[in-house]
């Protein structure tokens, strides 16, 4: 009878990916910075002694001091606290946008790959969405639906969804080409099970990697819309709008815009580094 090869093939591929990531210092820095920012955004508001909406006109545009670590803004509000709330809002907007995009884009990509009939109509729809510049798209949506949380998330989500749909379709098509899809069909599996247990289970890795990168885009887009005044309306703290408010006082109090911009940078950069590392690790595994 058949002897099994004596050697157990070591370790699942996911743990190997993790080991590779750990060996990568850029990855370590990225994770650390991102954790710090998330901590800042989530825990900060609970421990800050200031209210982000409490204006104090006498305290306008004060530079950093012992009482106000990052100074105050044009309304005399504590900038650090504003940034904590702002980061939280921006992160949530990015997250909600990317979640919406991943769900719809992922579904569109998988459906287009699974049902040949749907491929053409769905992908032409994606082409149309892709031909709008994201900012313009967000602008017109916000203009159409009026500013507000829902339209904002929808604008962000719809802007980054086409990319996710395309990547998902590509990943799903390469899985569809494999014999085991027919292997599932021939035992009589219903389409839903085939798509979940066979298609998605084998296609999700590249999609997830792309979604990570798309999260960075979503945050940038959220901030950009905020900066253009199409985000959540004042006085809601949001990084883009804080940066925009500071712009009027750029020469007398540069710290406002600078701190907000720096915080955006500190969110997007580590997210992109994380995504790149994931992609490299996946590429290397594939080769």
């Amino acid at each position: 009878m058949t002897d099994l090869p004596a050697g157990e093939i070591p370790a699942g591929s996911s743990s190997r990916t993790w080991r590779r990531m750990r060996r990568n210092p850029a990855m370590a820095i990225g994770v650390t910075v991102l954790t710090a920012v998330v901590f800042f955004a989530l825990i900060g508001p609970m421990i800050s002694p200031y209210d982000p909406y409490d204006t104090a006109l006498r305290m306008r545009l004060k530079p950093p001091s012992a009482a106000h670590w990052l100074g105050t803004d044009s309304q005399g509000r504590d900038l650090a606290t504003r940034l904590m709330y702002g980061a939280r809002t921006t992160l949530m907007l990015g997250l909600a946008g990317v979640a919406f995009a991943a769900l719809t884009g992922g579904a569109i990509g998988l459906l287009a790959a699974f049902y040949k009939r749907l491929d053409n109509p769905l992908m032409r729809l994606i082409d149309v969405l892709l031909s709008f510049p994201s900012i313009l798209f967000g602008l017109s949506l916000a203009a159409m639906m009026g500013p507000g949380l829902h339209s904002l998330i929808l604008a962000i989500g719809l802007s980054i969804m086409p990319g996710i749909a395309r990547i998902s379709r590509g990943a799903a098509l390469s899985v569809m080409a494999q014999d085991f899809m027919d292997g599932g069909r021939v035992i009589g599996l219903p389409d839903v099970t085939l798509m979940r247990r066979y298609l998605l289970a084998n296609a999700y890795a590249p999609i997830l990697t792309y979604v990570t990168l798309a999260f960075g885009d979503a945050v940038l887009l959220a901030a950009a819309l905020g900066f253009l005044g199409l985000g959540l309306q004042p006085p809601t703290a949001e990084l883009g709008s804080i940066a925009a408010e500071g712009r009027s006082f750029l020469f007398i109090a540069p710290h406002v815009s600078f701190a907000a911009s720096a915080l955006i940078f500190l969110i997007v950069l580590p997210v992109n580094m994380l995504g790149d590392t994931l992609r490299d690790a996946a590429d290397r595994r594939a080769s």
Partner: peptide
């Protein structure tokens, strides 16, 4: 031929 080719590491 009975069995399979051995794992080259073992």
């Amino acid at each position: 031929i009975r069995g399979t080719v051995p794992d080259p590491r073992l």
